[in-house]
Design a protein around this nucleic acid. Sequence first.
DNA 1: CTATCGTATAGAACGTCGTTCGATGGTCGA
DNA 2: TCGACCATCGAACGACGTTCTATACGATAG
Lengths: 215, 215
Amino acid sequence: MQSVMTEAVALLDEAGEPALTFRALASRLGTGVGSIYWYVASKDELLDRAADHVMADVLVAVEKLPAAADPIDSMRAIAVALFAAVADRPWLGAYFMRDTGTQPNALKVYELIGQQVQRLDLTRRERFHAASAVIGYVIGIAADLGQQPPQEVVDGTASRDDVLDRWADQWRALDREEFPFLHEIADEFAGHDDAEQFRAGLDLLLAGLRLQSGR
Amino acid sequence: MQSVMTEAVALLDEAGEPALTFRALASRLGTGVGSIYWYVASKDELLDRAADHVMADVLVAVEKLPAAADPIDSMRAIAVALFAAVADRPWLGAYFMRDTGTQPNALKVYELIGQQVQRLDLTRRERFHAASAVIGYVIGIAADLGQQPPQEVVDGTASRDDVLDRWADQWRALDREEFPFLHEIADEFAGHDDAEQFRAGLDLLLAGLRLQSGR
DNA sequence: CTATCGTATAGAACGTCGTTCGATGGTCGA
DNA sequence: TCGACCATCGAACGACGTTCTATACGATAG
């Protein structure tokens, strides 16, 4: 049933993985627990399929991206779109990481980035490493960011900035001699934008790639 | 009790997170389930503390790394050491990601990388982004690699290479027109070395950073 | 010496979860 | 009408995290 997946995604969107239980899903669908097992063999498969379900939408968004003349610009656009998708579906990060080689739509994303890499003047091994690095960076940062936000933020008790501020304060409370770097960037961290941070790192990676490919 | 953490780590090493249950840990320690709660408030804390416990060792290994004249070379060495630690403790990747800003030893690692970044000629924001990118890349790739290996590998039923080969075969079975990149790199993937792949991506990132810092 | 309090241990009990299983309809061709 | 197959359902099972109460040990105070 198609609605099983859409409803599963809805639960994940609302409160992350812990909210997706067979009982909650069944009650949401107005059916029994056992029925879900007719469509899905296990919770792992449920999560995989749910992730793949939304990756299908991400994929069409990525595919309708205007093709850039420069392959590296294209990769950048794909990566940014991918990050955006995970940014507003934090749970997706964790499940993009599982079985990248198994989920059909995740595979296609890998392929899309790889096709851009193929346009660069590199050895086969370099191409393999380049595509893997970009994918790895995107998924890694996205998953990191996708850490289940603290309960207070989910409640609405505190805003994301409040939490960031509190962390920054903790850093500032550390010994200045021992932690000069954390002191220096506490302010940067306090108000930082995840997407900007992601793009900055991505650009470093792509600059290195551009260098390797001889432009 | 110190032995609680060492035994917890032992369980994690043997069979990953699912193996670490309060009952298993209690039986291992020859005590009751309730006793563990005297030292630890929840399973989350147990995992955090276990992760921090091994990070302490990683930290001393990192700190006794020979200081390089070039800050970027230093960062590379730290990152490689960090990756190596996660590589033979796959479960560590997932729990390095949680509460990076909370676990004391993880914080110190962040600081160490940051101190190297501080030696580069960059703006404060660029430094913040650079350190975050490197940390993010390391953790991301490590966590990805730390995906609980398929059951067959844990059993010993199949080797890691067998699993890789099977994936490569799946890729080769795809339509060649639609998936040219996956076809091209199937061979590379089949026998690839995770550490080499990690280093290759890291070098791209660091090359970009070097470029930004004007050497 | 005994009463008391903080430290530490132990395990029964509770609620929730993923999962299994057998029973029950419904539909359709023979 | 009869089975064969698709689909649904919810009780039941075992494992888990967690809570709670009971108990013991040691030091300290009266």
